[in-house]
Design a protein around this nucleic acid. Structure first.
Lengths: 321, 321
DNA sequence: GCGCGGTATGCGGTTTCGGCATGGCAGGCA
DNA sequence: TGCCTGCCATGCCGAAACCGCATACCGCGC
């Protein structure tokens, strides 16, 4: 069966473009290659790199073999010079090594906390003062770290930690169901509670208040957590607070209090964002504090060391309260 | 001796930026790293890469060690997920491997002559027809090759070859001092000589001419090579040509001939660029041909395979003369 | 409590790698 | 012309790296 005649020119046509495999090679070979190219000599490159000439010779051979077998250098009697292949490889080798150098630098910065991304989350009232102050301090000390921040409720934040979307979260508890085995909790502070009164309220001048004196007041409640806390505390003192309004948003709740529609309990962290025409009086209570605030990290995940540094900034901010 | 008191903040300040060393690693590790990151599993990556799970585990460990010791993955009960370091390394690893892939592709193209740079040189009259025709043919068959071209005299071209500035040169000889040990010469053609006469010259109708019939003519001579050749030939026939004008530039020399100021010898390669108002008559001579034309390469240097392909194109063009 | 899916690790054989010494080649100088 | 020198390649050997195999270990879910 005769093969079909194909016109074949004098010179070989372009070879069929074979799929180019990714070469397996060592970065050491590339570095050696660059030194050899720079000096035009195996011997000099070997001296410079602290190797013998034979090692350099073998490394270049290995690189040539890994790259398809074409020589990268012409071996001349007085040294070597790059072939066309060698000249073509030169910029790639430089780029690859530079890129690896950059990568190593970024990883080092990441490791010692001086750079890289850091993703933190916090619940809303922590963002009123605690977290911003920690952020400011941290940003001064670690200018290279790129911080991203998100707000959320504690359960959502903990999920984000386990799924890997956050590195560190500022969470709170109103009871103590927190330790769950999947997270590490670092205690930041125990919040005390304040009573928010309209400026002209008869009790506004008191230095502190105990709950029984507030049994007859109208109450503004907000989020379920605060309401739960208020309810539990009040019931412990034998009365059921009369809830006049349920207002979730903290700014709105302030407005209701300022308008004299009732009084509210607010946690310490939210206290500093109170408007001037309401008065905050510390609530003295012998039972457990209303909330505990923690910084949480995922237990099975290695936290970036920037997270550790940020935790320190959080502690500092918490200590300043 | 008390140490000077230095204010030390609560959190550790940024560590001193240590000089980052270039990591020594294998590209295999990087590829494995990418597969692991993509699948979130050592086992799956191992299957995909045709290795065992233990090999993948060790490769990742080796990469982590090479990059400073920080883990690149969090080992979770159901697989692994990249740490902050791993996420930071990801784009670099991809870039490095892509770059190596590109480099391998370029080298492959260079090796089979379908790409890469090719630097050729030629003497002036070769550029009148021979080289441009070879170039056109070559460019059609090897569109990926980036050709650069320079013109020069034979000695300069040979120097450029040895010093590595050219890959292939079209050179000529007017005697035979060429084989010098440092170059390989590939014979292209033996040039015959033509006599250039003004259109109305009495001898212009002859089918061919022998030198003795031209002993009484005025001569226009150009480059030293042609002059040498003419002189040698004429002296061999017992007369010394009367040189009326010395004009180096070929276009100008044509003008002198056309104006009837004399006749000239021109080599075959320059014949086709003659203006229509002069007549070229082949010079019949039993002595050696005026010039031999070769393609030369540097002996101790590996010529790009595109050079071989171009040599074939040159042979084809030479055969067509 | 036990099996299951996944990673880490000790062990042995093979391969790679670097140093040492030697060989080969080309150029320069006497 | 012939020796000497400078440079790269290579055979040999000991050490280290690397892979596969088998196994230990650890959470999780049934």
């Amino acid at each position: 069966m005769p093969k079909p005649h194909t016109a074949r020119g004098v010179e070989p046509g372009p070879a069929p473009p074979s799929p180019v495999a990714l070469p397996d090679l060592s970065t050491v070979w590339l570095r050696t290659f660059l030194h050899v190219a720079r000096h035009g000599s195996f011997t000099v490159a070997a001296r410079e790199l602290g190797w013998t000439q034979s090692a350099v010779s073998r490394q270049v051979s290995a690189l040539e073999a890994a790259l398809g077998g074409a020589p990268l250098f012409d071996r001349l009697p007085r040294g070597v010079r790059p072939t066309a292949e060698g000249r073509a490889l030169l910029p790639h080798a430089e780029e690859v090594l530079a890129r690896l150098h950059r990568a190593a630098g970024e990883l080092a910065a990441l490791r010692d906390g001086t750079g890289g991304p850091l993703r933190i989350g916090a619940f809303a009232t922590a963002d009123a003062g605690l977290v911003p102050r920690a952020l400011a301090r941290f940003r001064d000390r670690h200018p290279g770290v790129v911080l991203t921040h998100e707000e959320g409720r504690t359960p959502a934040l903990l999920s984000r930690l386990t799924e890997g979307g956050l590195d560190l979260a500022v969470v709170s508890t109103t009871g103590g169901a927190l330790p769950d085995g999947a997270h590490d909790f670092h205690h930041l502070l125990d919040e005390t509670l304040y009573v928010a009164l309209p400026a002209g309220h008869p009790l506004a001048a008191e230095p502190e208040l105990r709950l029984p004196r507030l049994a007859a007041e109208d109450w503004i409640t907000g989020s379920p957590h605060i309401e739960g806390s208020l309810l539990r505390l009040a019931l412990r003192h034998g009365f059921r607070p009369r809830v006049a309004h349920v207002v979730a948003e903290w700014t709105a709740k302030q407005g209701y209090v300022a308008a004299g529609l009732g009084i509210a309990l607010i946690p310490q962290l939210a206290a500093e964002s109170a408007r001037p025409d309401i008065t905050l009086v510390p609530l003295r209570d012998d039972s457990a504090p209303a909330r505990e605030v923690y910084a949480a990290t995922a237990r099975r995940r290695a936290a970036p060391s920037a997270a550790t540094a940020f935790l320190a900034a959080l502690r500092h901010a918490a200590a300043g309260l």
